[in-house]
Simulated scan of single mutants.
Amino acid sequence: MRPCLAATTLTLLSVALLGGCASMYSSDSAAVYSKSDMRQVHEVEYGKVLDVKTVKMEGDKNDLLTLGGTALGGIAGSSIGQGRGSAAGAVIGAMVGGMTAQSMQRGATKDAYELTVQTDKGRTISIVQEADVPISVGQRVKILSGNGTARVLPQ
């Protein structure tokens, strides 16, 4: 295999692997609590689901992954030519690697729900959360809010 092709293949595989690792540590699920949510007071409200709309949640931006894609692209690009050609290849490879890493992150969408809930206090609220906890129209739910976040869970 030619060195340029091997380096490019290695770059793409590395960016894909790093992208997969990043999504393991981030969640917008109603059933997953962040460390900062622990031992915090959350207000509890009850209500009834009026509408459930399936939406897409865009992927997270991770500067470390973008930097990794940039570095790997630069390494792969530097194997093109010699002298100034190698330097130009490194710059172009770095730009392509960084843009590819960012594009992959944005494209890694998740299914989410936009939930419209009529609270027992008479308010109508809307919350978007990851679509991993089944919720349906007419269902009674519990709304937990605090620290600038809210989640809807089956009652």
Rank of each mutant, 00 (worst) to 15 (best):
P3K: 15
C4P: 05
L5D: 01
L10Y: 03
T11R: 00
T11H: 00
L12Y: 11
S14Y: 07
A16I: 00
A16M: 04
A16V: 00
L18C: 09
G19T: 02
A22H: 11
M24W: 04
S26C: 15
S26W: 14
S27E: 10
D28L: 12
A30P: 09
A30V: 02
A30E: 04
A31F: 05
A31D: 08
V32C: 05
K35T: 07
K35P: 05
S36V: 09
S36P: 13
D37T: 03
R39I: 08
Q40H: 11
Q40N: 09
H42P: 06
E43S: 12
V44E: 08
Y46L: 13
Y46T: 15
K48A: 05
V49H: 04
V52H: 11
K53G: 02
K53H: 06
T54E: 07
K56Q: 07
K56A: 05
K56W: 06
K56I: 02
K56P: 07
E58L: 14
E58D: 11
E58Q: 15
K61P: 12
D63V: 13
D63L: 14
L64S: 12
L64V: 12
L65Q: 11
L67T: 09
L67F: 13
A71T: 14
L72H: 01
L72K: 02
L72Q: 05
I75A: 09
A76P: 08
A76S: 08
G77V: 01
S78G: 10
S79V: 13
I80M: 10
G81L: 03
Q82K: 12
R84M: 01
G85D: 00
G85F: 01
G85I: 00
G85N: 08
S86A: 11
A87I: 04
A87T: 04
G89Y: 06
A90V: 03
V91E: 00
V91L: 07
I92F: 01
G93A: 07
A94Q: 05
V96K: 00
V96D: 00
G97N: 02
G98L: 06
M99N: 08
M99Q: 00
T100G: 00
A101H: 06
S103L: 10
S103N: 07
M104F: 06
M104W: 09
A108W: 02
A108S: 03
A108C: 00
T109N: 04
K110D: 10
D111F: 01
D111Y: 07
Y113W: 10
E114R: 12
L115V: 09
L115Q: 09
L115A: 02
T116Q: 04
T116G: 01
V117G: 01
T119L: 14
T119E: 03
K121T: 07
K121C: 03
K121N: 12
G122Y: 13
G122E: 05
R123I: 03
T124M: 09
I125F: 01
I125A: 09
S126F: 00
V128K: 15
Q129W: 11
Q129A: 10
A131K: 05
P134T: 05
P134M: 10
S136D: 14
V137R: 15
G138C: 14
G138D: 14
Q139E: 13
R140W: 12
R140Q: 06
V141S: 04
G146R: 12
G146Q: 13
N147F: 05
N147S: 14
G148M: 07
G148D: 11
T149S: 13
T149Q: 08
L153A: 03
